[in-house]
Design a protein around this nucleic acid. Structure first.
Length: 871
RNA sequence: GCCGGGGUGGCGGAACUGGUAGACGCGCCGGACUCAAAAUCCGGUUCUGGAAACAGAGUGAGGGUUCGAUUCCCUCCCCCGGCACCA
């Protein structure tokens, strides 16, 4: 091979020419239409995108992972369904409308059209005939229909809930819209406000959702752990404390510490607190103070603990002692009973509160090793259940477990309490005071109350021409929408203007893909045939909420007789985020201006270490701000479309699969993309060098191969085995690609020799092309054809591993002395232990380290390692 | 604050079940080609010492278990995801 041949062959790789042509061919042939048939189905689902405007790297990575798995299993003969759709309702469309006056519907549909064409240019094997968008009435009518079934079953119900209220904009704010306790647009201090909302009784399914986590063998442990912790089953007791004529009911996981209860604390919204505040202006002011701030748990958990004595006394159910009742901002209405018994001796939050307000702290559980109790400083072991009870009267000396039982028994006898199981999980509030969402199909009638919209009147259509302005829900001001007739009595009535949480939309879209053109039913027999989803792929940020709601919704539909699976997703892959370097300059006022990495050049020293970064436009330095998640705010987003135009889809796909394993975060690197591009050029050139050398039609005669040929063929079949394992079992596409690169380096070297076996080269290139096809489908199609094969590479099947090619003549064993590598041995595989020991001890460098020492032990790991322990 | 995850060369990462730390790629250095550059090709590249052979150190920090630890255990530091109305 001469340099000029390579150059000519390299220069002839033109992705911009071949990719659109191959995509056209796939489309004409309906290559990606999902059809059931003989053999196993494979439903491969990637989380559908929110149509935010254009595809970002996270999407690109997500869908490439799904495409690699789909195409790989398609080549192995599975009937693959890989659909795509749009999570099209939500806040960003309303924000965009406020910014530029375009109705959310138009903005959303324009974005969908653009992003669809972007997805197509990336060559994903998607079945577009099943496309759906959650903002289409054909989709959301089934949200409404199913909601009405849930209402009938009592799973959906109405109660009040607490929301963030912006008193200036007169609007409910999302947690995201509360910044440092203020509304993001008005800057007003946010308040808590109680409003009526619809809820779904997910707590009825808490135990099942927890138990069936065990069935999720194909889910990562960290996600399963997070879900289990979120559901948070705890065994404890419900205890009633008399308080005047009222009763304060609390739940505690530690009834064994009941004798250490020194005060009670109730939430600011608790009826007793409100009652006490009527005669106590200071308390009323404090309760009002507690209404300030947002409702997010992170905010509540980190705020300073504040409280005030109500003056009320509660009676301890076992001792009859009077306990002061406090209002405390760390007790939350809506979590448990909105009241707690405080045991500052053994609960860290109560301890902190008691120290601050000088409430008594009593030790009722011994510490390990009889250590003394220090009521000034919290120690971690105070909260453990390892000690015995003390200062607990008749219960002294009992273990925590026995104390738990004894105290609960006594409470039951006095009818002051009972054992109870409590979940951390709360019912799912689905009402949103927003326009761009699925209308809740309810009509409010003065006479008949809340009346469900009859099935035949569904869908309740969302008007699509409204433009939100940030002050409340425009639906509520849309008379044409609000004015309705009561389905019950026929009198004028008002339509519900709340819409559903967008998590409702995304809780069953995977079911709808199986039958998206059915306008008679929510799901059908195709759903039963395709479900469950065999592989689900999406961002780790959805580990709890979306995945839990989708599991819940599936069980609801099962109990309605609509689907027959208990769990929707057999196997789950959670991809990490896509990151990029950030660059900025700071002006005098400390404000940072962010520059896109594409506009910045890096200067390095002669060892390749980073020296400084300069802006290409003015040659002046910029600061490196570290690697962060790609985001508009840091201007570090890299546009996949621009890269596709520059390098082609295959290069972008290759880099995003090669740069890191899917579960880890991926750091974007233009130089890395350049490397992927170079590899594809070398691959193209390597095949063409082979073809120019004559290719071959001759069958491979493995018996006739020389040593170099046998070695190359062993490496080939090792690579085939490794790549199949990486694609199919490990999902480590980076190592699969590394193995393909490594082997093609060997092959390029091998085929330059005059003695190279052309039939072996033909086998090798034809195999490599199939191995890389799931990642870079366009170049694979083109090279498959160039190698003289008819039809699509994706119909060619997966290369078989020839076990006989894997046999080695020798293996290399490492020889260690006291755990340090001192030499290597080349031996026949599975050599006898005595032979290995003899040769290891005879090795020259090994002898230097064993000389004059006693050999105490020799450890042999077959075909791998010998460790000689001396001393 | 609570729950989950992560930390390995100049950089992205590899090492799958406790067995050769650094595969593959980037960057950098040297060479070939070129009037020159780009592109391409060849070689080198964890750090320290050494011409080399080789030796010592080394996987966020500290300790432990083991013949042997990136991998298992304990303590600590830093970074990231989620926290129920962003999706």
């Amino acid at each position: 091979m001469t340099a000029t041949t390579t150059e000519a062959a390299t220069d002839s790789y033109h992705p911009a020419r071949i990719e659109p042509e191959i995509q056209r061919r796939w489309e004409q042939q309906g290559a990606h239409r999902a059809e059931l048939g003989d053999g196993d189905k494979f439903y491969c689902l990637s989380m559908f995108p929110y149509p935010s405007g254009k595809l970002h790297m996270g999407h690109m990575r997500n869908y490439t992972i799904g495409d690699v798995i789909s195409r790989y299993l398609g080549m192995r003969g599975r009937h693959v369904l890989q659909p795509m759709g749009w999570d099209a309702f939500g806040l960003p469309a309303e924000n965009a409308a406020m910014a530029n006056g375009v109705p959310p519907a138009k903005w959303t549909r324009d974005n969908i059209a653009h992003m669809r064409s972007q997805l197509k240019s990336l060559g994903f094997a998607l079945d577009w005939e099943r496309e759906l968008a959650t903002c289409d009435p054909d989709y959301y009518r089934w949200n409404q229909w199913f909601f009405l079934r849930l209402l009938k079953r009592g799973i959906a119900y109405k109660k009040t809930g607490v929301v963030n209220w912006d008193p200036v904009d007169q609007s409910v704010l999302a947690n995201e819209q509360v910044v440092d306790g203020r509304g993001w647009r008005s800057g007003a201090l946010v308040e808590k406000r109680e409003i009526p909302m619809y809820y779904l009784r997910i707590t009825d399914y808490a135990q099942e959702l927890l138990d069936s986590i065990d069935q999720l063998d194909g889910w990562p442990d960290n996600v399963k752990t997070q879900q289990a912790n979120w559901i948070g089953r705890s065994e404890g007791a419900e205890i009633s404390f008399a308080c005047g004529d009222e009763t304060i009911k609390v739940f505690t996981t530690r009834p064994d510490t009941l004798m250490g209860a020194t005060y009670m604390a109730v939430a600011a919204e608790h009826p007793l607190a409100r009652e006490a505040a009527r005669a106590n202006p200071a308390l009323a002011a404090f309760i009002e103070q507690c209404q300030k701030g947002g409702v997010s748990e992170a905010e509540l958990a980190t705020q300073e603990k504040l409280g005030m004595d109500t003056g009320l006394k509660a009676i301890h159910p076992l001792t009859g002692a009077e306990l002061p009742v406090w209002v405390a901002n760390y007790v939350l209405m809506g979590y448990g009973e909105g009241a707690i018994m405080a045991v500052p001796g053994h609960d860290e939050r109560d301890f902190e509160f008691a120290l601050k307000y000088e409430l008594p702290i009593v030790q009722v559980i011994t510490r390990p090793d009889g250590a003394a109790y220090d009521a000034q400083v919290w120690h971690y072991d105070y909260a453990t259940k390892t000690g015995q009870l003390l200062n607990s009267g008749p219960y002294d000396g009992l273990s925590c477990e026995a104390g738990f039982q004894a105290i609960v028994n006594d409470l039951e006898k006095r009818e002051a309490g009972r054992a109870r199981i409590q979940f951390r999980l709360r019912d799912w509030g689905i009402s949103r005071q927003r326009y761009w969402g699925c209308p809740i199909p309810i009509i409010h009638c003065d006479d008949c109350g809340d009346v469900p919209v009859p099935d035949e009147d569904l869908p309740v259509r969302l008007p699509e021409d409204l433009v939100p302005d940030g002050a409340g829900n425009p639906l509520a001001r849309c008379e044409a929408f609000v004015n309705a007739t009561c389905p019950n009595c026929g009198k004028p009535a008002r339509r519900e203007t709340d819409t559903m949480d967008t998590f409702v939309d995304s809780s069953w879209y995977f079911l709808r893909y199986t039958c998206s053109n059915n306008d008679q039913a929510m799901v059908d027999e195709h759903t039963r045939a395709w479900m469950p989803v065999d592989q689900y792929i999406g961002g780790i940020e959805h580990a709890i909420l979306h995945l839990l709601y989708a599991r819940f919704w599936t069980k609801l539909m099962r109990d309605e007789g609509l689907v027959d699976v208990d769990e929707p997703f057999s196997r789950l892959l959670t991809q990490g985020m896509v990151l990029a370097e950030t660059y900025y300059r700071e002006d005098e006022s400390g404000r940072k201006q962010w520059f896109n990495p594409a506009d910045v050049d890096i200067e390095r020293d002669d060892k390749g270490r980073f020296l400084r970064a300069v802006l290409r436009d003015d040659g002046q330095p910029v600061e490196a701000g570290g690697v962060e998640k790609m985001a508009k705010s840091k201007n570090n987003g890299v546009d996949p479309q621009a890269l596709v135009e520059q390098y082609g889809a295959d290069t972008v796909r290759l880099f995003s699969m090669f740069a890191s394993p899917p579960e880890q975060s991926l750091e974007w690197s233009d130089a890395g993309v350049e490397g992927a591009w170079r590899f594809l050029k070398r691959l193209w050139a390597g095949v063409h060098v082979h073809l120019e050398a004559g290719g071959t039609d001759r069958a491979l005669d493995t018996a006739a191969l020389d040593d170099a040929g046998r070695e190359l063929r062993r490496l080939l079949h090792e690579a085939i085995a490794k790549v199949g394992d990486d694609y199919g079992r490990r999902y480590t596409f980076n190592t699969a690609i590394a193995a393909i690169m490594e082997f093609s380096n060997h092959l390029n070297r091998y085929q330059q020799a005059a003695t190279a076996d052309r039939a072996l080269c033909q086998e090798a290139w034809s195999s490599i092309v199939r191995l890389i096809a799931p990642v870079t489908p366009h170049i694979a199609e083109a090279l498959w054809q160039a190698l003289g094969h008819a039809g699509s590479v994706f119909k060619a099947g997966w290369p078989e591993v020839d076990e006989s090619a894997l046999v080695r003549q020798t293996v290399t064993l490492v020889v260690q002395v006291n755990g340090k590598v001192r030499g290597r041995l080349a031996l026949a595989p599975d050599s006898p232990r005595e032979e290995i020991e003899r040769q290891a001890l005879a090795e020259e460098n090994v002898r230097r380290f064993t000389e004059g020492q006693t050999v105490r032990r020799v450890i042999v790991v077959p075909n791998k390692l010998v460790n000689i322990v001396v001393g």
